[in-house]
Design a protein around this nucleic acid. Structure first.
Lengths: 205, 205
DNA sequence: ACTTAAACCGACTGCTTGGTCGGTTTATTT
DNA sequence: AAATAAACCGACCAAGCAGTCGGTTTAAGT
């Protein structure tokens, strides 16, 4: 078999399991041995493929986390329909997987940001870059909505983006072990309420 | 001097420094020795006053964190004025201290919730209890606002509370090392926008 | 079949951790 | 001044950690 293929397969397996454990137990509280035990692999295998635990984590972020964020939170809002509808559906879907599948690592990001903040600037850089990408995409989506007449021309696109990101990051934290399904429903209702307040006002005829 | 007083003073010193370091570096990433070095105290002193690191942390939560949350997020919204104004001012103040004083441990809570989630149920219980208290107080404040005619009678008080908590927890995460002052301003603007949409609609005369 | 190198093994090292414990200091009581 | 107990000290221990390294297995190339 192609050597390169085997290499990729092993690295992939390590990264997937690594993310799962880092997410569940935290980076500092997960040892390299924990991950290797799960995979029945040895220290040698690990340090053959990765130069350090930190390097390993950064590769996980670059490969798995970035892609997950893209597919869950960025691509779904790219389109020509009403961005408020797109965002609503996107959040709805993202929160739904969060309700059912505890390991969807849907919003790993805020967990890790909290964990590394002020402790590991190198890793923080990678994480906040992802947030920035999300923010940029939200902003341009909202601006498009203003052009297309879906969103009131007076609203501050940056402000809306930050408010959306805040509430999403927050609800993901609050949904942890606390009636996630009910919370999701209530959250989405209020989100729609907020959206109503920034959409183009129908001209009073 | 009163023995009890000395005892309290030492324990207080330990807890204050403990919270500071736990907040800065995380619970699992802060050793008991780190805290003791900061205070020039010994292992013996620590384990004379506290039975374990975990017990120590729980006492910090019960003493320091609970009180901070009360004084910053709960007491300021108790009053008979328009709850939406009270909450606006409360968030404004809380975020302002977060901007200027990195160590205000204003929202330690979401950090710790992320850190202990799925790892230490005992500690999680204490933390989510605090969230619950906050929630209950927000809900009753909003309900009061509905009675007093400040808030539209049709809004779901629970939903508003959860939406507020989410956005606050979220903005605290996002303000980490990323233009906190500008973000605060944008956040507050959107919060006011949202509040406008749930306040009592002026009768079209 | 033989060579070669990639992939993997696992004992080992040096270091840090939470927690213990026999002992010393400090301050109050008598 | 002697007695007593609370407060504190710091060497020590077992366990866990990231990372190393000399060696073995596996599989592709010739």
């Amino acid at each position: 078999m192609d050597k390169n293929l085997k290499r990729m397969a092993t690295m992939q397996r390590m990264q997937v399991t690594g993310l799962e454990l880092f997410y569940k137990k935290g980076y500092y509280n997960t040892s390299v041995d924990d991950i290797l035990k799960e995979l029945s692999l040895s220290k040698g295998a690990f340090y053959y493929h990765f130069s350090s635990k930190e390097d390993f984590f950064i590769q996980i972020v670059e490969n798995l986390v970035v892609r997950k964020i893209y597919s869950m939170l960025i691509e779904p809002i790219e389109g020509h329909e009403n961005p408020l509808d797109l965002i609503t559906n996107c959040f709805e879907d993202a929160l739904e997987t969060a309700v059912h599948n505890e390991l969807d690592y849907g919003f790993v990001l805020s967990n890790f940001i909290n964990e590394f903040n002020g402790r590991n600037p190198k890793i923080m850089k990678h994480l906040s870059d992802i947030l920035k990408i999300w923010e940029v995409n939200l902003v341009s989506s909202i601006q498009k909505g203003k052009f297309n007449g879906h969103i009131d021309r007076h609203v501050d696109a940056e402000g809306v983006a930050i408010y959306l990101m805040s509430s999403y990051v927050g609800i993901r934290t609050l949904m942890v072990e606390m009636a996630p399904s009910a919370r999701k429903y209530r959250f989405m209702t209020q989100l729609r309420q907020y959206f109503k307040s920034i959409q183009t006002k129908p001209q009073t005829v």
